[in-house]
Design a protein around this nucleic acid. Sequence first.
DNA 1: AATGCGTGGTC
DNA 2: TGACCAAGCAT
Length: 380
Amino acid sequence: MEHWSPTKITAFRKTLLSWYDEAGRVLPWRKDHDPYHVWVSEIMLQQTQVQTVIPYYQRFMTMFPTVDALASAPTEQLMRAWAGLGYYSRARNLQRAAQEIVNERHGQWPTTAVELQSLTGIGPYTAGAIASIAFGEPVPAVDGNAFRVFSRLMEIDADITKPQTRQLFEQVIGEVIDPKRPGDFNQAIMDLGSSYMTAKQPDSEHSPVRAFNQAFLDGKELNYPVRSAKPRPVPMAYLALVIQTPTGYLFTQRPSTGMLAGLWTFPLQLEADLVQDDEKQGELDEEILIKRAAEEFAADTGIEVTLSAVPSRRVSHTFTHQKWQLKLVQATLSADPDLSLFPGQVIAPSAFAQFAMPTVQQKLWRAWVKTMESDKGKEG
DNA sequence: AATGCGTGGTC
DNA sequence: TGACCAAGCAT
């Protein structure tokens, strides 16, 4: 890897910050340096692109304008505000940290990166971002952009998926960061990383820091950053139970830990759980599968249903590490069932907005609506 | 250290 | 469609 002289570092700071002053993005959370604004935006931006975050951030600030409002908000309301954004533990951790600031720190923010990291949900990157942007501490904020930008600038060959590599980058960037404008420096790196120095289609030819970009100068830009491949999502087959009652549909609230924690979906039945030891999944007749799903559902919940397949309605949804294939099956109950053994409730479509539902549930609902529309067409 | 945890965009 | 990527953190 390259090593930069003090002269080169000075020149880089000037070039980068001049460009940022002129071309830095105007974003809703950049109107001031209020730590609450910086914090909420940084949490939302974890693994999430700017364009996705903007509307969520704006709604969030209307609903929870201060750290006190967030601390005292009903968690259900918070989860509704977050629904669709993903990584839902971010929202819970955000509220936990807000409560800690209000109740245990008397509304006083920690002002250094080290102290900020003691708050739930704030790791090394977010701590660096808040400390530098809101409080002017000269610390790096090493995210995916920083990894990409500096690995190219200096041809750093360390594998960025390895935890130790972060320390190398923090040290390198710690030397280059402008101690007079650390927040602007870190944000300028992010803007650079999402404009001229993108992952797939960089435009380093026209980049303001083209002359500092060793990988580009050597024609090896797309070799950086070095990262080992991620494992493929594991396929998982589910039956999604669309159970209609006179007043709505049966929904479960998922357990408070694990995937989609606390969110509301149709009851889901893992097909693998319906397959017996001496059987191979995928070879089981669909009718048998559906029959067993009804038996399993009755055993779990005490609710008797007669399930039937919903023809050609399949939903696919890929998470980071799981690929779900869901088949819709449906049942209609003539009366609302006894829900004493069922971890959920009947929800009318008009009330869906009051519940936090993940994207996979939105897909299931759209598929079901299409089914009803096509059935209606046949009748008419 | 390795794994679990969402979603949307792009090619 | 599948693979990869995007302002990571907790355990």
